[in-house]
């Protein structure tokens, strides 16, 4: 559907708005709202890691050709690379998580706002409102188109949210334990009531970021905590993520004697042609993978 990563500068009509999005998710949201009135370029490609990404000269060129930039914010983009790219190109930057009530993670004495807000469809409604507002401000003549598409997408998000709640109700609450590669699933666990013993927060051997920020990365203590949790709660399966090297999770699965339940889309969506190439598809596939492994 969207995001051939460099389809941006090809045959775009001059009247179409050019959008640069930092992640595949944000590019998908923008495309749902902008439709054929915009051309979207995602800096990150499918499977890429936003925490450790290093922008290329090609990214700089495409950002400099855009009308507006959308970033996730909350330091998802390691060292704020998207903001730096767009500021250097003198392009306006919109933080799409504005208005989201962030989950605070305690780590090494610091409180960190979890940036993986898209794992709750209610939060995605905030992304949608921020993107729609920005598009209307930059192209007021297309207000009715942007608003109409946004309303449809918001209804799809509502249906997704209800569908997920009903689907996960099939897993007994004590079996609803989600262990993944890194702490990307806090909003997901909080919304759909996974990991009750951990205050409905994510359990992972790697912190909120795969980069070198405070509270990020893997520590031996976190690794041991995950193995203990698996044994204590009789976890049936743990999960690897598409944007994180699976090696660590595979070694934990081996040590704890538990199976790999499948691969989850997390910090970026799937390749073009896969079910996970859109946000709705990504969430659907993740949910089915989790339910089939834990039920």
């Amino acid at each position: 559907m969207l995001l051939p990563q460099f389809a941006y500068s090809t045959d775009a009509e001059p009247t179409k708005l050019k959008i640069a999005a930092s992640t595949t998710q944000i590019a998908d949201f923008a495309k749902k709202i902008g439709g054929d009135d915009i051309v979207v370029f995602s800096v990150l490609g499918p499977g890429a890691d936003p925490h450790t990404y290093q922008p290329t000269p090609g990214d700089m060129k495409k950002v400099s050709q855009s009308d507006i930039c959308f970033e996730n914010g909350l330091h998802l983009e390691g060292k704020d690379w998207m903001r730096t790219l767009c500021t250097d190109a003198k392009k306006p930057v919109i933080t799409t998580t504005k208005g989201v009530q962030p989950l605070l993670i305690e780590s090494e004495g610091h409180k960190i706002s979890d940036p993986h807000a898209w794992f709750s469809p209610v939060n995605v409604a905030k992304y949608v409102n921020n993107i729609t507002q920005a598009l209307i401000e930059i192209r007021p003549s297309l207000k009715s188109n942007f608003s109409a598409r946004a309303k449809l997408f918001l209804e799809e998000l509502r249906v997704l949210d209800q569908w997920l709640k009903e689907l996960f109700a099939q897993i007994p609450p004590d079996k609803r334990v989600l262990i993944t590669s890194h702490d990307a699933f806090n909003y997901f666990c909080n919304t759909y009531k996974f990991n009750a013993k951990y205050n409905y927060l994510s359990v992972a051997p790697v912190g909120w970021s795969t980069g070198a920020e405070v509270g990020a990365g893997m520590t031996p203590a976190r690794r041991q905590q995950v193995i203990s949790s698996i044994k204590q709660f009789g976890v049936k399966a743990i999960f690897v993520e598409t944007s994180v090297n699976p090696k660590l999770v595979r070694s934990i699965a081996k040590d704890a004697g538990v199976k790999i339940g499948g691969v989850l889309y997390s910090d970026s969506m799937g390749e073009a042609g896969s079910a996970g190439e859109s946000y709705l598809g990504m969430m659907t596939e993740n949910a089915l993978t989790i339910v089939n492994a834990l039920k």
Binding site: V122, A125, V128, N129, T132, Q133
Partner: peptide, 10 residues
């Protein structure tokens, strides 16, 4: 409504 469109001047 958590899923309402909330943009100015609608």
């Amino acid at each position: 409504d958590s899923f309402a469109l909330e943009v100015a001047n609608t």
